Computed example of a mutant assay.
Amino acid sequence: MESDAYYVWREAGFTIDILRDGDIDCEEMEIGDSIITLPNGDRYSALLVTREEISRTMNRHVLSGESLGGSYYCAPDLIVIRSQGVTAMINVIRDIVESDRISSLLPRISDDGALDVPSM
């Protein structure tokens, strides 16, 4: 299921809204800024990124000077994925939800929109 800005997937255990990356085919996306909603209404934030995309971003930061000249890459909701595409992203989130680890791995989005980052 798709909307203009988001690729939306719904199943019994969760709904995921993945921000589309312009005109890139959804199965070729290497970064998925996502909101996961559980049946009880709890929402979580996840940034699903391939290793290759992280490398490209860090190389860009060498040129721009960001992140100490590309020395690091961090995000509070980061999940590094092996394969590109929304199918891979959905499978990863399904595993996290089904293993009941979402609240310990990903930041919960509070009612005011702030991220409540879990302590690890």
Rank of each mutant, 00 (worst) to 15 (best):
V97E: 08
A75W: 07
I81N: 01
G41T: 09
S71L: 14
G69I: 07
Y72P: 03
A5M: 01
G85M: 01
C74R: 15
S34A: 13
I90S: 06
Y7I: 08
T15S: 14
V92E: 04
V92P: 02
G113D: 15
S55W: 12
T57Q: 14
A46E: 03
D23K: 02
S55V: 10
G70M: 12
D111H: 11
P107Q: 06
T37M: 08
W9E: 09
L106W: 08
S110F: 12
L115E: 12
D17A: 04
Y44G: 01
L106G: 02
S67R: 00
E11F: 12
R43S: 05
E30K: 00
I90C: 03
P39R: 06
L115H: 06
E28H: 01
S67H: 03
S83D: 14
G69D: 06
D77K: 05
V80N: 02
G41A: 09
I31V: 11
Q84F: 04
I81R: 00
D23T: 11
S104N: 10
S104D: 13
P39M: 04
S45N: 10
V49I: 14
N59A: 06
L38V: 14
V49G: 00
Q84A: 02
G41E: 07
E98Y: 15
A88P: 11
R10Y: 13
A46Q: 03
E98G: 03
R20I: 08
I93Y: 01
S34I: 03
Y6N: 04
T37R: 06
L68K: 10
D42S: 14
E11V: 06
C26F: 09
A75C: 10
R101E: 07
R56D: 13
S67N: 10
E53S: 08
I79H: 02
H61V: 05
C26Q: 09
R101Q: 08
S103D: 15
L106Y: 13
I35N: 04
S110K: 14
D116N: 07
A5V: 13
L48S: 02
L19W: 02
I54A: 02
G69P: 03
D111C: 05
T50P: 12
P107C: 06
I90T: 08
L63T: 13
L106V: 09
F14C: 07
C26Y: 01
G13L: 07
Y73Q: 03
V86F: 04
I54S: 11
Y7K: 00
G85F: 03
I16K: 00
L63N: 04
N91P: 09
T50C: 11
R10Q: 09
L47G: 06
D25V: 15
E53N: 04
F14M: 12
E53F: 15
D95C: 02
H61A: 14
E53M: 13
L63E: 14
D17Y: 00
L38T: 10
V80G: 05
